[in-house]
Each structure stands twice: as C-alpha cells, then as structure tokens.
Design a protein around this nucleic acid. Sequence first.
DNA 1: AGTATAATGTTGCAATTGCAACATTTTTAC
DNA 2: GTAAAAATGTTGCAATTGCAACATTATACT
Lengths: 209, 209
Amino acid sequence: MTPLFFNINAKNQEKLLYTLEAHTFTFPKNTRVLTAIKEDNIIGYVVYGYMQITRTDYNGNMTIIEELKEDEVFGTSLSSLNNLEYEIVTKEESKIVILDYNRILAEENNKLPYFYQFFKNLLEITSNKILEKNERIEILSKKTIRDKLLEYFRILSEKLGTKNLHLSLSFTELADYLAIDRSAMYRELKNLKEEGFIKSEKKKITLLY
Amino acid sequence: MTPLFFNINAKNQEKLLYTLEAHTFTFPKNTRVLTAIKEDNIIGYVVYGYMQITRTDYNGNMTIIEELKEDEVFGTSLSSLNNLEYEIVTKEESKIVILDYNRILAEENNKLPYFYQFFKNLLEITSNKILEKNERIEILSKKTIRDKLLEYFRILSEKLGTKNLHLSLSFTELADYLAIDRSAMYRELKNLKEEGFIKSEKKKITLLY
DNA sequence: AGTATAATGTTGCAATTGCAACATTTTTAC
DNA sequence: GTAAAAATGTTGCAATTGCAACATTATACT
C-alpha cells in the first residue's frame, strides 16, 4: 500500500480518491508521463512498475533525479515538476494514480475526518524525500569515485538490510546518478573487486567488508 | 515574517504558538543549538541571525547541509535531525523559536481553523526544501570545478535577481559546500577572473556574462 | 530470426584535481 | 592590544579522472 494511505481504511481511501478526482493511467515502457498526462499540479503514486524522474539541462545532459518504484509517491510539490526540463519516464510498463494537487489544498476538504491523516502522510512522505536527497548529497560530496561507490553501496545495503545488493540502475545510469564517467566507474569497480572489497557478477554486488 | 505563518493573522499566530508550546531562545555565536535545546522532535524558525546545519561523518569531515537565515524554517521533519551527526550551529547571535512537532501532529489540533493553513505552509516549506536540495544536487553533479562554480553562481544570481553576488559562505565553507578542494577552487576562481567571466573582490562577485 | 541500437567492457593519454606545504592576512579571544 | 587561531592566497606535483575510441555482448524491434 502506498504510504499516502497509511492509517486510512479502504472505504475512506475510495472517498479520498473520488474527492481528489483520481485518474488511473497505465503506460507502456519508455513513455514520457508528464507529456502524456498534460497536467502540471499533481500528486501521483505508482501502483506497479518502475519509472525515473529525469532532468535534461541546457546542454542536453540527462540526469536521473529519482527512481520511482511500486507505491512510491511523486508530484509537483515533491520534485519541482513545474519546470519543463523535468520528465518522468516509465522504464517498464507502469500503472499510476494521479491526484489533483489543487484539490488537496482546497479549503473545503479539510473537514473530512480522514483528510488530516492524508495530509500528515503527505508531509511525512515529503520529509522523507528530503532525507533521500541528503543521502544523495552525501554521496556526491565524496571526492573520489571509490568513495562515491562505497557510500552508495553502504546506503543501499542499509536500506536493503543485506550485503547482497541488486542494482536497480544499469551501470550507465549509475555512473550518471553518481555524476562520474562510466568507464572510470567501471575501472574503479574492477579495482574494488581485485582488492577484495566486493564480489560482483552483472548487477549483483556483494560487500565483503 | 516566516513562511510558516503565511496567511495566518497575528492573533491566530499567537494562539498557534501557545498551542504548540513555542519556546524562544537566543544563542550567542558558535552555539550548538541541538545540543543546547536537547529536544529531538521539533520545528523551528529563525527570528534573526544566521545558522548552519552541518553534518560530521565517521571520518570527522564536516559538511554544510543547509544555511538558515532570518525567517527560515528547520526541524526534525525537514532535515533528519534525529541523526546524531547532525548539528545546527549559530554563526552569529541568533534568536529562534522552537515548536513541538508531536503537537503539530496531534489529532486534537486539527479542528482549529487556522491550523489547516499552518499545515499547508509546512508542506509548502518542506516541498521548497526539496527544490533546494535538487539545486544542490544539480551543482554537485557538474564534473569540473569551473562548472560547479558557474552553476552555483547562476542559481544564486537567479535567486538574488542580480549579477552582483555577495557570498554568505566563506571560501573555505564554499569549497566545502561544493565538495571541492579549497585551493583548487581558488585557482579556478582566479582563472575565471583572468578569462573575464567574473569580477571579484573579497566576497563580492560580479558575473560578466 | 536478424538487424539495429544500446549497454558493457577495456585501455591510453591528457587534463583536472586533490594534497601538502607554505606565506600572508584577517579574525577571534582574553 | 596582542597572541593565537582561522581564513585566504599561492604553487608544484602526483594521483585521479574524464574523454575518446574501440571491441564485445546484450537487448529491443519488426
């Protein structure tokens, strides 16, 4: 269940979805979601699938801002999607639910009993996004490729609760996410392997320290 | 006025402060605020002064996470301050107001008419923090020192609405914020100056492009 | 199934950067 | 007011990294 509905029973969830004019979409792989839905002040969550929030700068460089997996929440207020360079791309077929953010803010809704809980959830989710951003900043602040990789692995390992990591990003994407050159990253990954810090096979990485 | 009280009249502000058990503190320069107030689930804002949220990692490296100027909001939900490595340090004498975050979330308050507005403000502020984090990520993702500096200047200039920038960070702090070596940064700053991209005198920098 | 396209490996080399080690200036603290 | 501490300048050099340019899989598409 999406954290957006934490502590809200099924009946009230339905009411909420109705009140907030929820729309459900299913998109095939590699669809530009924002372009497709054309609305610009929304909150959404992923029912199933996998998407990435990306940004393309004036030089045409694309960066992955965020990954979106099942149940995760995205939207205007969460990621500055009002800015045109941002896009959400499905990396596999994905089903999403979109809510009208203006309705969330509308005064008349605040009397609904479950609405306060919904609002709290939204605040909680938004706060957690900040933590994630701080983590990424932590990674990007490391000076060497090695330290960036190790910090990325450390955080991922902490989240998964295991030293057996399965990367959701491709190497090309990971290099992009860590803001380093792909081939240089690969070189360092090999070094880490040779020096016995990690074992790796394709996208499965085991931390040996 | 702090954005926390946007659209809330003076009378209701007072009620709110009372209900949420506001406490006011004034700290001299270089005080560790979190250590001083000892509470760990709080929202606060700066009445006057200047503070920095910092993080120290296991190697003892200190990083500036965020700057806090007059009216700006900080707190548990905004910056993961529950983590012990984080600290807020006054860089000049600062007066702050602290609110109990548990009270903000308490169910009984949601009937108060101005409370919904308060909550909206909090969500708005939290969302804006994400934008700021994204900006910093944008900067840190640049590959060269030059590009990091220029991106930092670009964003700052956009915020201030002028090409005459006055740095609030010292060079040592700025290097830290950009996650680059201070002397290397200085070298690049000199290059930018020589090549006519900027003029600079102490902490005043003028963009010439 | 077969081809186009994208991702993964690999390497040499030049450019950028971090680091160490200073001198000098500014700020802080008593 | 003065000593100590911190910040600002400056430079040479070694280490790291980005980049270009490939070969080799793997994946996607019709």
